[in-house]
Every structure is written in structure tokens, then in C-alpha cells.
Design a binder for these strands. Structure first.
Lengths: 364, 364
DNA sequence: GCAGGTTGCGCCTTCGACGTT
DNA sequence: AAACGTCGAAGGCGCAACCTG
């Protein structure tokens, strides 16, 4: 709350009144303006400028107005480097991730950014090129240089394990898509529960068993979904088909679908995400296998598009916004209490959304 | 290049050798370590530490090793606030955007982040809640506070025009999805050219005219696509149907599709993005209108999924990675030359990708 | 001349402690 | 007591000095 002080004071100039240049002679001037400059123009001391800038008391209305006017005139913005130096913190959270293109990460990041902003924190993005392992090292190293108070890691924990990497001490950490609950705080969708719901739904419809198109083995989320799928089948005493390996892409789902279309007793498939489910739908359509009459399909994620697949996809809804929110909550708690000694896993529930891609098996 | 010096020097500790705590007694210690601390442990002066940290000459191998060892021991990371203060820059680029969920923005942001990282710059995300106009103001104001050397704005320029907003002087700017080429540098996909290609493709197939499902009027990209669509039809002397308003979502495409399915002489539709095209496909499928036999559909974006729609979608490919790259290039040029006096528009070509959703009209 | 230590200053802001009116 | 100004210090780093082996 204290944080909001400065922003309120230093309001930008209103209206299109003066568009091109500021009051500064020479038109476009891309130079830093210091408090001293503002003080000189306003005819006050820089101490007073500081008081105004931070919303402190002891400044009379008229003086305050003069100072604000001078700020606008010069386009003053407080030097956050100096501020950070003084305060010992940056009000910034770093986010390390592999790809923004994947369905979940971009939505999670968006939620993180939104909630962080609401708390007065900015987000710094550290992308990692998966191709070269070295870059992971580089990113973490760079991270050490970075002006961040905490870090949220969105990726497979595998790469945290490849021990060349150690997060710099002094930064608080929360991890998504990982089982590092013993070392770092973890926030994630309850993958296992979501997957169980999907498989049980298919069994309850009367299918003898359920096939699985998995995500890449490097992903913990994929592993847990596959594991839950297997567990449910075994618990129900059903045969466990060999899972088909996918890589999250629609193309890999399509490839898997072409193979599954040849399996005469395959009546139900659980795809580890919606994109692969899309690939399945197209493959089955091409091979003349009707969904859901011949084969039922369940996805995972509930992307906005899933409701408009042909047919509309039954899938497991992930609440990415909530995941992002809890991530921010987690790191902020660590920052504010200084307590990061109690890692743990915070699971966000997933829920099955039944649409038209699932039905009882054909009774022949 | 000079920038890479420190990163190389301050390598993180290798291996899982010492996992839990650093050499510091007391285990987890979340305290800043200064150069002086390192100097004391290494038994050298902080000046020497500085020389090592910056890769300067004048430090003999053995001493250098001692210093590096001390850095690792303490988990030292240079204070970037102090560095920024000293150098007068942050090596950070701010990105202002509305939503990461939209197809293009997340991919553009990813490319921006990647290229910026390669140049030694970090990315700070400033999300804006579209709902309340005030937040736009707030975001820009906050921006002023932010530790950034330049800003990339990804949004409809409309909101830049609503004059309450003025970007703070002293920061360089590049804008995406806008026509503010006279005021700021602009980078964007060549929307008009892409749209023209789509419409011409349909006309060349023999369709009498082409219907259009547009994006929201608040988007300049949507406006330009619609305009190009209209221009091509008029130039060819074809009737111009009333465009159907969409909002980028698959649902709006679906709604539009239900209406178009009732138009007996509608044989070709150009949707302003792939998601709406997906909605169209489902609506036509439900209404028993075969694509492409009865109706041809073209989208825009070429999302990874478009190739797996039913049928695979003919669409206009956007090179988001290139857009992101040029954005970074643009701001870096401004930062480095200090010249931001020559705004202009940098258009990235789009190209039509023909798949199976388009065909000549039925010859009855 | 080279490997180093030592000193001091500046970057900009915040804050506390005193001043004065 | 309220509304200011002045002064000094701190925060971490980099650099330019100058000085010592």
C-alpha cells in the first residue's frame, strides 16, 4: 500500500495538450531528469521534491502543486535504480520458462503478470532455448545478475535436477510443473486428479479400457497424467494398452490417431492435451471412424477452442489463472516473511468438462 | 560484448555437490552479498574483485581463481541496481500488452524475449486489463517508474490516442499493431497484403464474391484486413457483402457461421483469424454445409493447429518471430544511436498457405 | 612495467537530524 | 507546531587516480 504512493503523485500530463515536445527547450530530449532538476524548476529543495514524490506529509498544497507541475514539465520519473539501491529490493519477480507458445504457460504467465502488477511488482521474463542445455545454465547465471527479488520457474524439473544448475541464494523460488516440493515451493494443477477423472468418465460410460496418447517424457505433467491413467485402469482390473508417445503437438496426436484407427478394439482415448486430441479427431475423421460413435476422445487443458472442435471436445479444465495467482502469492509470502524454509506443493483442482466427444461404446 | 564479461566470470557452483546450504554458516541465508564481502573472504581488495567481475586485465590467474572461489562460496551476485545506477541504463526493455492469450501476442513476446536476451537485455512485462481504461493510464504511469530503457507496445493504437496517455519522455518506443508510424516506430505483419492474398485466392478459384468475418473494430489489424478485403472486391467489381462482426473468438466465428449457413449464395468466407475460422468450420459442419465443396474458408495467422482442423485450413501465415525480432532491433537501434526521431513502419510479409478448406465453387 | 592495494568520487534517492521562519 | 531548507550518510559498484612492491 505504501508502494502506491509515488505512482499516485507522479501523474502523467493530461490531454493531448502538448504532444510533440515537453517544456524542455530542444524538443525531444532523451535525458534523465533528476530530483535536483525538478527542485530547481519548482524553486524548492530536492528534499521537498522527495517528500512530494513519496507522498509524505509536511508539504502544503500550493507547494505540492508547484512540484507536480515541474515534474510534468520535465517529464520526471524517479530513478528506480537508485530507489532499488536504497530500499534493497526491486519489486520485481523473474519468470523462467521454456516457451510461451505452449497453451498453459502463456496463460499462467499472464495471470502471474496481472496479479504481480496488482501487488506493485513487475515481471521479468527469462526465456530459455530448450535446444541447447548450456542456455539453461546461462539463464540461471544471468538470473543472478538480474534485478529480481524472487523467481517463478515454469518448466520440467528435470532441468533443475541436471545438477549444473543451482538457483542463486538470496532469491525466493516457486516452481510450476515439477515435483520439487521438497526443495522449492510448488504450485500446479492437480494433474493426477484431472487425469483420473477423465479415465473414470470413459470407464463409467462402459468402455472396456482406455488408450492413452501421452505428452513428452520430459514433462512431469505428462508423466503424472500417464501415471494416473495407468493407476485407474489397474485399479479397475482393466487391460493397460501401450501408451502412444506424443509431444503435445497436434501433429503427434494425428500420427497417433492414424495408428489407433487401425486398432479394432480401441473405443476410447485419453489424450494428454487438447492439441493432440485435435490431431486425433482429424485422424479418426479421415479414417472414417466416427467420434464419439466409434471412438470416444478426452483431452486435457480445456483451451478456449476445444468447445469448437468437431465434435466439441470433452476435456479436463485447468485453471491457469489460479495457478498464476498462487505462484505470485507464494513468492510474495516468501519475500515478505523472509520465510522460504517450508516448501510444499499447492495443487489447484482440475475438473472434467463433458462435451460431445465421449459416449458409450457401440453395442455390437 | 562487454556485457557478457560478468556472466562468464560469475559461474554458478557446479554439480549437486553442496545442495542445501552455501558455505555460509547458518544454512539458508537470504542476504545480499557485496563485493566487499567477497574481497574479504578472498583476501583481496574490492577493486580486484571488481576487475575480476568485469573481466578486466591486470589480475593474475591464481588471484582470479581465489576471487571466483569466494564468489561461489558466498553466492555473490553483482547488485544490478547499483550497476544500473552507475551505468545509467538498465539493460531492460518493457513490453506493454493487453493479453498474452491472443494467438499473436504470446508468440511475438516470446520472440522479443529471446532476441532481447541474446543482446543482453531482459524483458519486463506490463499487462493491462482492458476492462478499465484507467488501468491504461496506470500502466503508463507505472512505466515511468519502471526500470526500462525502452518500451515495446503491443496493442491497438486507439488507446494510445485517447490522449490521457503520454509515454514518458526518455524512453524509446516501438509499437506493434498500430498505424502510429508518424509518432512512433511501428513493426507489424503486412496485414493488408496478407488479406489481399486470401481474397484473391478465393476469387481466382472462381467464387463470385467473398464474405468476411471481421475482428473487433478496436483492432487496427482487424480494420486493415477488412479494408483490404473490401478493396479487392471493389477493384474486381464484385458485390461487397455486409461483413459479420467477430471478436477473434471461435465462438464469434461459430455464431457468424450459423448465419452464413443460411445464405444460399455464400460460397466463400474470409475469416480474420484462425480461431473464428474454426468456429465457422464447426457451424458449417453442423448445418450440413460441406467445406470446401459447398463453402470455402480462409483464415489468418496460421496457428500450429490450423493444419489439423477438419478440413486442414487454408490461411495466411504470420511470421511472429520476425515481428518480435524487428521490434527488438528497432528499440536497440534507438537506444544505441539515441536516435528516435525517425519513426516509420516496418512491415513483415505474410504469405498464403493453401490447404484443404478452399476449392472452386460447386458448378450447378 | 606488472600485479595489486588504497582513496575518493559520482550515480540518485531516501531518510534522519537539525535548522529557520 | 507546521512548512520548509540544509546537511550528511548510506546503499553497491566502477573508475580514475596514486602508491607499493
Amino acid at each position: 500500500m505504501d508502494l502506491n504512493g509515488p505512482e499516485q503523485q507522479v501523474a502523467p500530463v493530461a490531454g493531448g495538450a502538448r504532444r510533440g515536445g515537453s517544456g524542455v527547450p530542444g524538443g525531444r530530449r532523451k535525458q534523465r531528469v533528476s530530483m535536483a532538476d525538478v527542485a530547481k524548476l519548482a524553486g524548492v529543495s530536492s528534499q521537498t521534491v522527495s517528500r512530494v514524490s513519496n507522498g509524505h506529509t509536511g508539504v502544503i498544497g500550493s507547494t505540492r502543486e508547484q512540484v507536480l507541475a515541474a515534474m510534468r514539465e520535465l517529464g520526471y520519473r524517479p530513478n528506480s535504480a537508485a530507489r532499488a539501491l536504497r530500499y534493497g529490493r526491486f519489486n520485481t519477480i523473474g519468470v523462467i520458462l521454456f516457451s510461451l507458445s505452449s497453451t498453459g504457460s502463456s496463460r499462467t504467465v499472464e495471470a502471474i503478470a496481472t496479479h504481480a502488477a496488482a501487488e506493485g511488482y513487475a515481471i521479468t521474463l527469462i526465456p530459455i532455448d530448450v535446444a541447447t542445455q548450456d542456455n539453461v545454465l546461462g539463464a540461471f547465471t544471468r538470473m543472478g545478475e538480474l534485478a529480481v527479488d524472487a523467481v517463478i520457474v515454469i518448466m520440467e524439473i528435470h532441468l533443475l535436477d541436471t545438477a549444473t544448475v543451482q538457483l542463486p541464494p538470496g532469491v525466493h523460488v516457486v516452481v510450476v510443473d515439477s515435483d520439487a516440493g521438497d526443495r522449492y515451493g510448488v504450485v500446479d494443477t492437480d494433474q493426477a486428479d484431472g487425469a483420473r477423472g477423465a479415465v473414470r468418465h470413459l470407464l463409467e460410460l462402459g468402455h472396456r479400457t482406455v488408450w492413452h496418447v501421452s505428452g513428452p517424457g520430459s514433462s512431469y505433467a505428462a508423466q503424472r497424467r500417464a501415471q494416473a491413467w495407468r493407476t485407474v485402469l489397474e485399479a479397475a482390473g482393466r487391460p493397460v494398452p501401450v501408451p502412444l508417445d506424443g509431444d503435445w503437438s497436434a501433429e503427434s496426436g494425428y500420427t497417433a490417431g492414424l495408428r489407433l484407427a487401425e486398432e479394432p478394439d480401441c473405443t476410447a482415448v485419453f489424450a494428454a492435451n487438447d492439441q493432440m486430441a485435435l490431431g486425433l479427431l482429424r485422424a479418426f475423421h479421415e479414417r472414417g471412424r466416427s467420434v464419439p460413435a466409434d471412438i470416444s476422445v478426452v483431452g486435457f487443458d480445456d483451451t478456449p477452442d476445444a468447445a469448437f472442435f468437431i465434435p466439441p471436445l470433452t476435456t479436463v479444465h485447468q485453471d491457469f489463472a489460479e495457478v498464476g495467482r498462487r505462484c505470485v502469492e507464494g513468492v510474495l509470502r516468501q519475500i515478505r516473511t523472509g520465510d522460504d524454509s517450508r516448501p510444499g506443493t499447492d495443487l489447484v483442482p482440475a475438473r472434467l468438462v463433458v462435451r460431445d466427444s465421449t459416449a458409450p461404446p457401440r453395442t455390437t
